[in-house]
Amino acid sequence: MPYRSSPTRSVGSTRCSPLPALIADVAVNLHGCGPQSVAAVFSTRAHTILTHFHPAFPAVPGPSWLDDQHEVLRWCRMLNYYGVCADHEDLLLPTPTATLFPAR
């Protein structure tokens, strides 16, 4: 998995050791429609970015933002635009069958 090390940083009087900063394959902008939201998702350096279109980023594709659309419909429409199946009538999350982060 690609990663980079983040620099050592101080938190209060405690020195923290470097932690690997993973670069995600996909980052999804579920924050909003403003240019700050698009810039924030781009700052993740993810390989694939899913976001709504914004005129400040004309080279970035995406569906238009509809102010009068309910949020569930808005986000599902965006995911569907990118080929991710999202049904606005099916909001249940399945119970995980495996532990994603096992205890250490």
Rank of each mutant, 00 (worst) to 15 (best):
A24V: 08
F53Y: 15
A40E: 06
V84C: 08
C85P: 06
L79C: 10
Q36H: 14
V26H: 04
V28H: 07
S6H: 07
D25E: 15
P20I: 11
C85G: 08
S10H: 11
R9K: 05
V38T: 03
G32M: 06
F101L: 13
L73G: 08
H70W: 13
S13G: 11
A21L: 12
T48Y: 09
A59T: 14
T14I: 12
C16T: 04
V11M: 08
R104Q: 10
E89C: 07
T51Y: 01
F53S: 02
F57H: 03
D68G: 08
A46H: 01
T95S: 09
L100Q: 10
P55W: 10
V26Y: 14
V84Q: 07
V41Y: 04
R15M: 05
P2W: 05
L100I: 12
L93S: 15
F53H: 07
G62V: 05
Y81D: 06
R74I: 13
Y81F: 14
P96I: 08
P94V: 10
C85F: 14
V38L: 04
L22P: 05
R4G: 12
L66M: 00
V28G: 14
P102R: 08
C16R: 03
A56Y: 00
R77D: 15
T44F: 04
T99H: 07
V11P: 03
L66E: 00
N80S: 15
T99W: 04
P58V: 13
R104D: 13
T44W: 01
W75Y: 14
S10Y: 13
G62H: 03
V72H: 00
L91C: 15
F53P: 01
T51G: 01
L93D: 09
L79M: 09
V11F: 12
C16V: 09
P35E: 07
V72Y: 00
D90C: 14
A39P: 02
S43E: 08
V60T: 12
S37E: 12
P18M: 04
R77H: 09
T8A: 11
C16Q: 13
V28K: 04
F101A: 12
C33N: 04
P20N: 10
I23Y: 00
L79F: 15
T95W: 00
L100W: 10
R74P: 01
P63R: 00
P61F: 07
P55V: 10
V38D: 01
V28T: 14
G34W: 06
A27Q: 07
P20A: 12
H54V: 13
H54G: 03
N80P: 15
F42S: 02
H54I: 11
V60M: 09
S64N: 09
R4F: 01
S10G: 03
Q36C: 15
S37G: 13
H31P: 02
P2D: 13
G32F: 06
I23P: 00
P94Q: 15
D68P: 11
M78W: 06
V72Q: 02
Q69S: 07
A24Q: 14
A59D: 11
I23R: 00
T95K: 05
Q36V: 14
F42K: 00
L50R: 00
F53K: 02
Q36K: 07
G34S: 10
L73N: 01
S37L: 01
S43A: 10
P7I: 06
T14Y: 09
P20G: 06
S5P: 03
A56P: 00
I49Y: 01
L92C: 14
E89Q: 12
S13R: 15
